[in-house]
Design a protein around this nucleic acid. Structure first.
Lengths: 190, 190
DNA sequence: CACTGTGAATTCCTTCACAGCG
DNA sequence: CGCTGTGAAGGAATTCACAGTG
């Protein structure tokens, strides 16, 4: 969240920002921001605030996003296609370099510049330096794809867009986003 | 999260589930589940567990999802289209009944059974009993769309899929999902 | 007997207040 | 003087342990 905020500030050519100014943007309070940033080190200048450019770079390096990360996308349905073409990953230095699907009519087609490959060829990511995967497959296929990804022994993080809980080896970190669930939470607040 | 879990259990024809069994599925621990559910009332039977069907219905009613909710989608790009056709909202009783965009080449086209309308006609949701909106527009357009939605005075919840912070009247609850940010968090854990 | 429901204990996170520094 | 960095205080969430019950 902070990396995105500081990246945006950079495009606005801001030199510095104080915790209270940043708090207003992020809808947080100033001490929270100072605490958070201080956990990772002392980035700010007293009396001035946080230097935008260097803080962005420091956070980027802490998050291991200073070297570009390659990701594999599994699932070339509507959601997968949207994700493949989504420009927002660039800010975080993440590149989707391979796309897999199991539907015969999708394999071989192009999404942007990438060709959709057969999901059975998933192990080809082994030598490609890909440690991230995005899952955009139906819920009932998710666990079996995870198994295949885990068997490659190179995937260390999975962004799961299916509404299901995955069982993975401890060496893999999973983040699940269930769009419907998030939307479903809203009526409670109304 | 619990509603989804109990809904799935229902499709599996399970009659009851204990907190420890549910904990295993959700990767939580049993006391957490009992605490959470007990905040909303006493659903379980001692010695047996939670009755799947009735607990599902109780949670559904607490979340205000027992009466079907209508939602408007703004943005008919790739992500918007994927969301419009996403079947997962059904479990939560949410229906996307209107789609808006500002691109002339999209207005009038059909996505599924719905016709994409001009975003300037957004106020037509007023009489339609729509209190939810999903934002799938570029970040730089998000705030102005929010303004239009707020001016309708009927929207009470927004699911924002753009990577930006929105300023809204206090009467509107916003949940923001930034796919890139979530993916960007993974390398830190690897 | 197995499992829920819940006060109490613990742990974690947030907020505060102010010392310290450019 | 203004704003960061941080120990201390306060508040919230999680975990524990066990009483209570079908």
């Amino acid at each position: 969240m902070y990396l995105r905020a500081f990246s945006i500030l950079k495009t606005e050519n801001r030199d510095t920002i104080s915790s209270s100014q940043l708090a207003e943007r992020l809808h947080l309070n100033p001490p929270q921001i100072r605490k958070d940033l201080s956990y990772f080190g002392a980035f700010g200048t007293r009396g001035v605030g946080y230097p935008v450019a260097s803080t962005a770079e420091q956070i980027r390096s802490i998050l291991k996003l200073d070297t570009p990360q390659k990701a594999a996308l599994v699932g070339a349905g509507r959601l997968g296609t949207a994700v493949a073409e989504y420009p927002g990953f660039k800010v975080f230095g993440i590149d989707i370099v391979a796309i897999f699907d199991n539907a015969a009519d999708k394999i071989g087609t192009k999404i942007g510049t990438k060709i959709v490959e057969d999901v059975s060829r998933i192990c080809t990511i082994k030598g490609a330096g890909i440690h991230l995967a995005i899952l955009a497959v139906p819920a009932d296929a998710a666990q079996s794809v995870v198994k295949q990804l885990a068997d490659c022994n190179t995937i260390k993080g999975i962004l799961n867009l299916s509404p299901c809980y995955l069982t993975v080896p401890k060496s893999i970190k999973v983040i699940t986003i269930d769009l419907a669930m998030e939307l479903g939470a809203l009526p409670y607040y109304m």
